[in-house]
Structure formats: C-alpha cells, structure tokens
Write a protein that binds this DNA or RNA. Structure first.
Lengths: 178, 178
DNA sequence: AAATTACGTCAGTCATGTTGACTTAATTCG
DNA sequence: CGAATTAAGTCAACATGACTGACGTAATTT
C-alpha cells in the first residue's frame, strides 16, 4: 500500500563498496540485511497461519509437499533438516485437520507418500501469494537482471553438499523417486 | 573446503525467467532458495555458539550491540522485534558471562546503554568471520555488480516502514541518540 | 532367516518466543 | 511541584519448535 515511492529511503544509502573486487566490507551489511529481510519475510505467513492454529513448521511442510507431491517422509526430513520426532507432530496435525494425506507407496509399501488436499492447496496458495508479493515487489525495485543475480547468490549461500539436492528439487517439480 | 569447483551444480539450472518483466514465476523459487540459504547461513554461527552455551538469540544481541555501541535497550527491542522479557533473559546471560556491559546513560540516567566487552568482541568477530566467509563465497560466484543487486533486493524485502530504520542503522555506525 | 529400512511414537528436555501484571527509578509535562 | 510518562527490569505461566534416547512395527533387502 505504501510502497509506491520508496526511492528516498534507498538512494541515500552510503556507497559501501569502494574497491571493485574486495569482498571484505560488502559482506558485512549483507549479513545484517539478511536478518531484517528474513525477519519480515517469514512474518507475513506466520500471521496468516495463526487463524489455522498452525505455525511456521506447518507452513514448511505444506510448502514442500505441495511443490513435490508424493514426497517421502525421509526426503522431507532431509530437506527440513529436523528430526523425525519434530516432523511427526506437525505432520500429524496437518493430517488430522485434513490439509495433508498420506498414501502407501506402490513400489515400496513401507513408504507413506505425502500429498496436500484441496484444503491444503488453498492454504498453501494463500501463504504463497503473501510471500511472492513481497519478493515480486523487491525484484521490481531492482534491475531486470537482478532476479538472476539474487537467485544465484542465494543458491551459492547454501552448503556446497546441499546444492545438488536443491537443484534436483527446484529443477523437477514432479519429484523423482530413488 | 569442498567449494573449489561448484560450477556443474549451478550452471545446469533451468531458465525460469522467460519473460523480461513478469514477476510471477521467478518469485516462486526465490522463496524456496531463501529458506535453504537462511537455513545453512544461520547454522554456521549456531554450531559455534554451542561451545559458549549461547544460542541464536545471544548472537543477534551481540551482533547489534557490537555494531552499534551504546545501543539502548528500547532500540534493541525495536530492531529484534521481540518482547522485553525475551530479551531480558539473553541479555542477563550475556552480562553475567561478561560478554556485554551496561552503562548508565549520561543525559538520561534511566537508560542502560549496551556495549560489548573485549571478550564479547572476540566472540562476535569469530561468528562474523564464519558468516562473511559464506557471503563472500556466494558473491564471488556472481558478477561484480551482483553485490549491489543483492543488497538492494534484501533491502526492499524489508517492511516499508522498517526500511528507514535499517538505513539509519547501517548508514551510521556511531549510533545516534534521540 | 537376519539385517536393514521407513515410519511412527512415548517421554523428557531445551531454547526462544509469548501475555499479563507489577516494580523502580528518572524524566517530562501541565 | 506533583502527576504522568518513559526506560528498564522482573515474576509467573505458557506455546512452539526444536532436541535426545529408546522402542515398536511392518516391509524390504541381503
């Protein structure tokens, strides 16, 4: 609403990067900006989730199950980097309230493949709209090429050994089985 | 250690942005990348903090007090967006263990201005080194102009009404009093 | 047949956040 | 000057989301 003109608050920033290649100084304020950006970024969804009795953890599960239908529990644990017990609680709540369903794997009947229900899909879309709106605004204030730069930067911020997994996840929406 | 060549895992990413201006699709994977990037970004410091019996909350306090010596408690609360009670606990621990000191304000003796001790400075530098290393690596994989794009993007991700405050914080290291 | 895997669950703990109520001391305002 | 406000601290109770450790069960692999 109030983001029509935000030029004055971002043009008067000090020219921090004086040298062309030196990565010592620039990293300093990016660390801080990352904190502020993430702080506000997650708050959008957090507030919307209260109405459903859910928290951030539920959102993350919903998001990844929505984007990767048929996700296995083990895969989800590896994505979220949390313990089985932590996931167990939020997953049970999501299933109990009808936002996620579990189906037995066809090839391997031990697996409980995860899918969002219609209700789950509606919620995840609502949350997603909030977050993409913020990202879209931020991108709109940057150069057209900035989107790719940001994507590349964030990707390289990820642990080296995790990057191939992320590529596999974001690369294929269908979700391959091992 | 293993980040010498990570080219293959980041060049084979799909060209998501086909249109030049449409911000609908690109935002999608940035949301996800932001999660992964932040997940790994904070883990660096989190693991180092265990040895001191501290957590992420202590790190945030240390960071902002270090960068803005003489910070008032009220200002810190507004930066962190947490309650007085939450801050109280971590601040007391930091003071008890000798990482932060509080000095009475000269102009206003109700204020308890915050400063890091030498010990606090050493810890914050250690943590900072971990985080800037990651950021510097990520920047090194991007074009020289990407740093400014990333900074701009992150800044615009912050709530509009918070941006002036962030500008004031990152702009002046000295920390002005009201 | 034994070992491993996928998943679930019980029980206890910890870190970090929250509300609400209240105190103390210092400053500001009428 | 006296009242109201502000800065900071504190007690208590509670919620969330994470953790460890120990087990159980069914299905698959070896």
């Amino acid at each position: 609403m109030t983001d029509v003109i935000s030029a004055d608050s971002c043009t008067d920033r000090p020219p921090v990067s004086t040298a062309s290649e030196a990565p010592a100084r620039p990293a300093f304020d990016i660390v801080e900006l990352l904190f502020f950006a993430y702080r506000d970024f997650v708050r959008d969804a957090d507030e919307a989730l209260i109405a459903y009795g859910f928290g951030r953890a539920h959102h993350r599960v919903l998001h990844f199950v929505d984007r990767h239908p048929g996700l296995r529990v083990t895969e989800l644990l590896d994505i979220l980097k949390i313990t089985k017990q932590s996931l167990g609680r939020v997953l049970r709540e999501l299933v109990d309230k009808g936002f996620v369903v579990q189906r037995e794997g066809e090839a391997d009947r031990r697996q409980r493949l995860l899918f969002v229900t219609d209700r789950g899909d509606r919620l995840v879309n609502e949350l997603h709209r909030l977050q993409t709106r913020r990202v879209a605004h931020a991108l709109s204030q940057c150069s057209p090429a900035a989107g790719e730069a940001v994507r590349r930067f964030l990707f390289e911020m990820i642990d080296a050994e995790e990057r191939p997994k992320v590529t596999a996840l974001t690369g294929s929406t269908t979700g391959e089985r091992s």
